[in-house]
Design a protein around this nucleic acid. Structure first.
Lengths: 252, 252
DNA sequence: CGTACAATTGAAACCAGTCAACCATTGTGG
DNA sequence: CCACAATGGTTGACTGGTTTCAATTGTACG
C-alpha cells in the first residue's frame, strides 16, 4: 500500500534506468548527466526494509527517487531517535561520509526506490570537476542546516508548534508550493512522527485530532490535507506570507 | 575574566602566529603545515564579540584556538537557540559552506582566538590535494553527526540526563580522558546552557544544584568538577566503562 | 474471521515551565 | 571608597503541558 509521492526531479537520464533520476535537482542544484556514471545502481525497497544499518560498512550515498526513508540513531539503552525523513530528491547517508561505518540506520517507511551513488566515485569525480565537489559541499552543509532547524524545533517549541512546522515542512518538500487543499502523504506511524518531533505517539495523535477539530487540517488514515495554511503557519510560529509566495524551498 | 581552556592542538606552525595552530588536529585528523597557507589570519575576540552574524557574508571557516564560541540560530519571532559550543580544535562555520550568507551567528562566550580559513582557499587546495578534500568532507559529516546526537538528546532525554550528557561531552572534549576530579570550565551562562539543552535557566540551575547535593559534581561559579564519573555516566544513560577506557574521543 | 498492529481518547501523575523573591558579583559613577 | 544599578544565579510555590497508564476502536493482512 505504497503512498506514492511525486518525484521532484526532472534531470538527466540514469545509466540503467529509463526514468529521470534524482541526482538532477537535489536541493543544491547539482545537475549531471548520469550517463557519466555507469557505476550507478538502482535499488528497490519494500516497506520496512533497511537500506543500511548503523555500524554497517559505509560505501555509498543514496538518492531517493520515490517513496520515503527514515534515518535514525540509537541510544545506548536501545531507544530509537529518528533524525530525519527523506523524500524523493533527498540524499541519504551524508552523516557517514569519511567513516568506515554508517553512523545511522535508514529504513524504508514505504515502498521506495533509491539510486546508489558510491562515494568513492563521487569523490574521484569531485577531484576533477569542481562543480561536483562544490555540490557535495553544499549538500553536506545543507544537511547541517536542516538539522539545526530541527534542533530549534526540539529545543524551543511546544507540541502543537512542532506538529505544525512538521506538516508545513513536509508539504513544502512535496509540493514546492503549499496552499489550502494540499495533500500530504504520511506513510510513517504516529510513533515515528513522535520520535522525530520529540513527542509521544499519544501527543501526536491528540494534537492532530485537535487541529482537525479546529478545521486547520483534515486527517485521513495515512495522510493529511491542509485546509487553512495561514492558520497552520501561525500555529507553527511562522510568518504568514501572502498567497503564492513560495520563497525558501528548504532548510528554512 | 577569561576561563582559560587548554588547547588540544599540537600541530604545525601557523603562518603568522608563533604558537601551534589548530588546523593540525581538528577532529578529523587533518594535519597540515599551515605555512602553506599564507592567507591565514588570526583574530582575537573579547567576551561577547560576534565572529559573524547570521545573514552576514560567508567567506571563511574559523578554527578555534583558545576560548569558546557559541553558535546560534534565531526563530522568526526572535528567540535564540544555541546549536553548539565550540572549543579549541573545533571548526566553526561549516553550516554555511556553499552559501553566500551565514546561516547562523557565532559569538565569543569567553576571550577567544580563532584562525580564519578562507573557504575559497581550502576549496582550491582541496582540488589538488585529495587529503584536504577528504578532510573537509570528514569535518562536515562530523558536524552532522554531532548535531544528530544533540537531536537525540533534545528528543528523548529528561533534564538531568541532558545535563549529565552535556557535562560528560564537554569534559571529554577538553580532557581527552575524563575521570574523577576533572574540572570543566563553563564560561557560558545558565541561560545559554539551557538554550542549548532545550531547558529553562531555572531548570539548569536546579539540576546542577541537585547533582551537587548528591555529590556527583561540584559546582563552582563558572565551572564544574566531576566527583563521580560513573554515577554521572549513569545519570546520562551511558554505559559505565572501566577506568582509563577512553575509546571514542568525539562525535559520540 | 480473527489476530496483530495502529490510532484514538480519557484520567491521573509528573516533570519542567512560569512567576517571583532573594542573594552574589561586577562594574559604574558620584 | 561607597552606593547603586545591572547581570547572573539560586530557590520556592504554583501551574500546566506532556507523559504515562489504560481502555477502546479502527484498520490491515494472514
Amino acid at each position: 500500500m505504497a503512498t506514492h509521492v511525486a518525484k521532484r526531479c526532472d534531470a538527466a537520464v540514469c545509466g540503467q534506468c529509463e526514468q529521470p533520476c534524482v541526482l538532477g535537482t537535489l536541493q543544491c542544484g547539482l545537475r549531471l548527466d548520469l550517463r557519466e556514471f555507469p557505476e550507478l545502481k538502482e535499488r528497490q525497497l519494500a516497506r520496512g526494509d533497511y537500506l543500511f544499518h548503523a555500524s554497517g560498512a559505509f560505501e555509498s550515498l543514496y538518492a531517493v527517487r520515490s517513496g520515503m526513508l527514515k534515518v535514525s540513531v540509537l541510544t545506548e539503552d536501545g531507544r530509537e531517535q529518528i533524525t530525519g525523513f527523506f523524500l524523493p530528491g533527498d540524499l541519504v547517508g551524508l552523516d557517514s561520509v569519511g567513516l568506515r561505518q554508517h553512523a545511522s540506520s535508514a529504513a524504508a517507511i514505504d515502498d521506495t526506490v533509491v539510486c546508489e551513488l558510491p562515494f568513492a566515485v563521487l569523490e574521484r569525480h569531485g577531484q576533477s570537476v569542481p562543480r561536483i565537489q562544490a555540490a557535495l559541499f553544499r549538500m553536506l552543509s545543507g544537511q547541517i542546516r536542516r538539522e539545526q532547524s530541527t534542533l530549534l524545533l526540539l529545543g524551543s517549541l511546544r507540541a502543537e508548534e512542532r506538529l505544525a512546522q512538521f506538516l508545513i515542512d513536509l508539504s513544502e518538500r512535496v509540493h514546492s508550493d503549499t496552499q489550502c487543499g494540499s495533500a500530504i502523504g504520511m506513510p510513517m506511524t504516529r510513533e515515528e512522527i513522535g520520535s522525530y518531533l520529540g513527542l509521544k505517539l499519544e501527543t501526536v495523535s491528540r494534537t492532530l485530532s485537535k487541529m482537525h477539530r479546529d478545521g486547520v487540517i483534515e486527517v485521513v488514515k495515512r495522510g493529511v490535507r491542509i485546509r487553512q495554511v495561514d492558520r497552520l503557519r501561525r500555529l507553527a510560529g511562522l510568518a504568514v506570507r501572502p498567497q503564492g509566495d513560495s520563497a525558501h524551498r528548504r532548510g528554512h
